[in-house]
Write a protein that binds this DNA or RNA. Structure first.
Lengths: 340, 340
DNA sequence: CGGGTGAATGTTACCGTCAACATGTTATCG
DNA sequence: CGATAACATGTTGACGGTAACATTCACCCG
């Protein structure tokens, strides 16, 4: 199962074309085209005849030909990270749904953030004449790799609002502060943080904001624990949480769940001994044990807004600056006031 | 943001074509084509010159034209359910990865299982001249809706091995029996089940097998609790679990997590008072509280095998019957021997 | 009642690529 | 040394649509 080059080509007889329909309806192929595209000035009776022919032949428009002639494909290219985490996946679904509403479909490809991988992804999508590009730019390098593209409108997503220019994102700084303010207001003063994958913009923003917050409040900087978004990593990091820490801010929910598991194994009770806040609000977090306090990110809104902007750009309207999407805090049982 | 018909067409100047490259390299466009497609019999020096021209112009093959000329698009159409659950999503990623290895990419669309929605999805994908179709057929009706398609190889996925014909699936009956045998061997005799979305093949198979199992062992049929795959539904169902039940088989992990939450709220301890088995083995299940015993489904294998079969079919090789993919049981802490 | 007008439809060229066939150019060999 | 492969490349015509322009016809009006 390796990539063959001159592929055997299992010639599958093509379906009927416009000409076939035209012949059957006794009109010219152009008239068929006009019916298909809802052009005015077709006699109802003619339209009827054409539509009948279409139905009878089971005709289906060839979008490759249409794309060739018009230069448009009604497809939006989407570049995703290679690992299917909750955020990208949710956003993808939202994009798919929103795109469908306006007659577009996504053409998906995955890429890591090195420029070679991105280059391949771009070649693939642009070669398909996608009408626009939505790039999940979780890593700063991605922006550079895509920068040269001018063939087509490009929109970045999941950039943590660090590149407001052409990007739709949940405000990571605001989300992080929501979590930390909550813990601080419960009286906690000894904080630790478990990060997401090093280098990813969102992980970096949460981490930087965490450290900023500590400094602002004159709190001690305990070691930051490195994670990779996975529950496994959260578990391992949870084993390393320092004695005396009462507030643990974890960069996403799965890691938080892993970490809580580790803490309990160590005999620490959440939230009695230590409060934990996650990030994302995955559906299971409400039923974790204890229910996980977390920052909700509205990925559906991200997808919707992304498509709406992309659609505007495709139609030549250049919209104004984009506001970040505001996250909100969901307080559950994994956080409690610090013990006296 | 509604679907406009005659769309304004933001004319974006097209990129260079083969002719431009040919002119620059001082050869004919056909020679360019040959270089691009790795045809033999090109003088190395000529090849060099063409490749230089390609690089200099930033030429990119127009796949719409290629698709039109060859009738192939190197794209696999994928029809997904509208709600992004773990199984379909994981499978999608696996398909994307496997497809990439053989030079294909997925074109995704979602559809519910009614024939109208499926019809639209099919029109869209076949209009794009996809080379093959992978349909996530979670509902029996889907099979009927897609049945008429002969233009292109079609493969079903996630059918729970109920339609072995043209389908790749994890064996649901086997998986269910793994879970139930485990519980039975621990001494449990009072079972209850929380189902997935009514009507979906996988949910149905798990449920039917559950009932069969009860009958085979002469166990009482307590009411089956209706769920919908969501942790929420699991929680609600968990509130309804009957007194005296010691073994709860839940149709997926998120619902199991929700159910456990409900049981603990009711003062029942898992696994002391009641053992719970889930299905799917989502990554967080290992760190649920208690660690969830569950049936692991290898979605990566499903995706891989699906692509491999589809690829074979595209190249005209009709492969033999497909073996189902075997799930396995992962025993963790949510199951224990029944108390004496 | 002839020309103008607009509605309905037809004709032709072109989008960028591949496939089939045609041509030109070297080596090869009797 | 001329016929003849074998190789390297060029030319032409699909593929199935869309767009621009051309045509036909009926009708209206001065």
């Amino acid at each position: 199962m390796r990539p063959e080059r001159p592929a055997p080509l299992a010639k599958q007889g093509r379906g009927p074309s416009m000409h076939d329909v035209a012949a059957r309806a006794g009109v010219s192929h152009q008239t068929v085209s006009r019916v298909l595209n809802d052009f005015p000035g077709i006699r109802p009776e003619t339209r009827e005849r054409v539509q009948a022919a279409i139905r009878e032949l089971g005709y289906r428009r060839n979008m490759a030909a249409r794309a060739l002639a018009t230069g448009r494909s009604e497809v939006i290219g989407v570049i995703m990270p290679e690992v299917p985490h909750f955020g990208p996946t949710s956003t993808l679904y939202a994009i798919e749904h929103a795109a469908k509403q306006v007659g577009f479909k996504p053409l998906i490809t995955t890429a890591s953030w090195d420029s070679e991988s991105m280059g391949e992804a771009l070649d693939f999508l642009l070669g398909r004449a996608v009408d626009a590009l939505v790039v999940m730019a979780q890593h700063p390098d991605v922006l550079a790799a895509v920068d040269a593209i001018t063939d087509v409108p490009v929109l970045f997503v999941l950039t943590g609002n660090s590149h407001a220019e052409r990007s739709v994102a949940v405000d990571q700084v605001a989300g992080t502060r929501l979590a930390l303010d909550h813990l601080y207001s419960l009286g906690h003063r000894r904080f630790q943080h478990i990060t997401g994958i090093a280098g990813l913009t969102e992980a970096q923003l949460r981490r930087d904001t965490f450290l900023e917050f500590l400094d602002e409040h004159g709190l001690e900087r305990l070691p930051v624990l490195e994670g990779d978004w996975s529950a496994d990593a959260g578990y391992r990091a949870g084993l390393e949480v320092e004695e005396g820490v009462t507030a643990l801010f974890v960069a996403n929910d799965p890691m938080a769940i892993g970490a809580i598991h580790a803490l309990e194994e160590r005999g620490l009770s959440v939230p009695r001994d230590i409060s934990v806040v996650g990030f994302d609000d995955v559906p299971e977090s409400a039923y974790a044990h204890p229910g996980l306090t977390t920052v909700h990110q509205d990925f559906a809104a991200v997808g919707l807004r992304a498509v709406s902007l992309v659609f505007a750009a495709i139609n030549g309207k250049e919209p104004g600056p984009v506001e970040p999407i505001e996250p909100w805090l969901v307080v559950r049982d994994s956080t409690a006031p610090v013990r006296a």
